[in-house]
Design a protein around this nucleic acid. Structure first.
Length: 258
DNA sequence: ATGCCTCAGCTCCTGAGA
């Protein structure tokens, strides 16, 4: 089972790239589940027909201009949950469903803008609510994947300039403490289960030739539960779509469950 | 300096992203 996450930074702009990317997978190893973030599309305008024509079922949860998430799957998604139950939020950030017996959560974590800002405080509240909800989901569904654009780096290995970016957004101790608290629920950073190339990132700034100079951050993650950890056979970041004309600023992350 | 790109939208500028 191959599961992936990709912040597409507008699905209406990136839909052809998403379909091309899915079609480019090996025939014997298609992507079974794909979580998308920043679709930036209201549900009325969501490109459902195009995605279904590519052989995928799709759940989507969007809003105007910002945020928006979707969950593509080759088999039906059941028990769908939108956003964090009990946490009032006018932003479309979370889609959760069961696919092939795996509880899959795709999430677009808040950016946070700057430490000390109102948006940073919202990010911390959102992370608290997410953690308590995921704790309950894990108890009910031991086979669980939590993936998406976390907007948080785990440690300095995930940062192109850890000195210059010390305690800036995505790199603060407070954010990392919250991320670590998710891990402590019984989740594992699938990417670090394997030896990986140094300076591996999932996002590069559009400006300043960020990608060409590999000035990036690893902020897109796939966390797997204790029960799934022994089944993980690979986890990779696919940089190829970042080289497309008119790319998203994020690259997809993939995990394979044996 | 807080921009450099990119995107959406009450679109010829602004807000937000990260």
């Amino acid at each position: 089972m191959k599961i992936a996450t990709w912040n597409v930074n507008s699905l209406s702009v990136r839909l052809p790239q998403v379909l091309d990317w899915l079609a480019a997978q090996p025939a014997d190893a298609p992507v079974d589940v794909l979580a998308l973030q920043e679709t930036k599309t209201v549900d009325e305008k969501f490109p459902r027909a195009e995605i279904e024509a590519a052989g995928y079922q799709v759940q989507f949860f969007g809003q105007k201009t910002y945020n928006g998430v979707a969950l593509l799957s080759r088999t039906p998604a059941t028990d769908v949950v939108r956003n964090i139950p009990g946490f009032a939020d006018d932003m479309a950030r979370v889609l959760c469903a069961t696919v092939d017996g795996v509880r899959v959560i795709g999430a677009y974590f808040p950016n946070g803008q700057a430490p000390g800002s109102d948006k940073f405080a919202y990010k911390m509240r959102w992370l608290d609510a997410l953690r308590e909800w995921v704790r309950a989901e894990l108890a009910a569904h031991p086979k669980l994947v939590l993936m998406g654009d976390y907007n948080i780096t785990f440690d300095d290995r995930d940062v192109w300039d850890p000195v210059g970016l010390r305690e800036t957004i995505h790199c603060t101790t407070e954010e990392r403490t919250h991320l670590r608290a998710l891990i402590d629920l019984g989740l594992h950073d699938a990417y670090r289960l394997f030896e990986q190339p140094p300076k591996s990132y999932s996002w590069w700034d559009y400006r300043m030739l960020g990608f060409q100079k590999n000035r990036g951050l690893r902020i897109d993650h796939i966390l797997v539960s204790d029960a799934l950890k022994p089944k993980v056979s690979a986890c990779t970041i696919d940089r190829a779509p970042r080289k497309n004309p008119q790319p998203s600023d994020h690259a997809p992350v993939l995990v394979e469950l044996g």
